[in-house]
């Protein structure tokens, strides 16, 4: 080992970063799924949704969630960035490689990097809008009807894809479960969540149209 490395060396560094990546990722998945269930409250009607929103407001959960997200997303990006091919040259190699070896898990990683980057932008917009406007069924429905439908549909699909693939990798990397059956289970779970999200969106859209 070189001198400078030895002096600055912490043998646990890479494990810790790996741990941060995994834990932050898992937290985001948990958040995402909870979020999907919460917004699905609209299935029960506008009042149910607003009650829940009000409840969150009273306990100051909205700003807390935003702070939580900023921290966790920040940590996730910080940990993941060392993996993402940053240089143009590396990108080129990766794309060529994926095309060469016809291997679906390799493709899914490239998509994961892309969806991750896109999600960052979309999530910032989403969070800004929600923080600025607050949570209210009418606001949401008019937003969805007023041109944001595509935005939310894309956000839904990308986040579910990213979460599903990310979760799959965590299990694959740490062992315990058979990865081919894992893939099937996760696909089913993700499709379910997408369906829930899509139905929710549709309800908002209809509400917006009728308003």
């Amino acid at each position: 080992m070189q001198l400078q490395k030895a002096m600055a060396h912490n043998p646990r560094m890479d494990v810790i970063v790996e741990g941060i990546q995994m834990v932050s990722g898992l937290l985001l998945v948990v958040f995402l799924w909870t979020h999907m269930l919460f917004v699905a409250a609209i299935w029960l009607g506008v009042n149910a949704f607003n009650t829940l929103a009000h409840f969150m407001d009273v306990f100051g959960l909205l700003p807390a969630t935003v702070v939580f997200l900023i921290l966790v997303i920040g940590a996730h990006i910080g940990a993941v960035i060392r993996r993402v091919p940053r240089q143009w040259q590396e990108q080129k190699i990766l794309w060529r490689h994926a095309k060469l070896i016809h291997h679906s898990d390799t493709w899914s990683w490239l998509f994961q990097a892309i969806t991750g980057t896109a999600l960052l932008a979309l999530a910032i917009v989403h969070m800004a809008v929600v923080t600025y406007g607050g949570i209210d069924a009418n606001l949401s429905s008019s937003r969805v009807h007023g041109g944001f439908l595509v935005f939310y549909a894309v956000l839904l699909l990308l986040s579910e894809y990213h979460a599903s693939v990310g979760l799959y990798r965590v299990f694959v990397k740490w062992g315990w479960v058979d990865r081919h059956s894992l893939k099937r289970v996760l696909t089913v779970v993700s499709l379910l969540t997408v369906v829930i999200g899509a139905v929710t969106l549709w309800i908002f859209y209809v509400l917006g149209a009728n308003a």
Binding site: P11, D14, V15, V17, I101, H103, D105, T106, W109, V172
Partner: peptide, 21 residues
């Protein structure tokens, strides 16, 4: 840990599993 608990070792793996396949 010093030998393989690093980014050049096992933590460099991002879990694509082309090796396993």
């Amino acid at each position: 840990l010093e030998l393989v608990g690093t980014d050049d070792g096992v933590f460099g793996c991002v879990g694509l599993m082309a090796c396993d396949d």
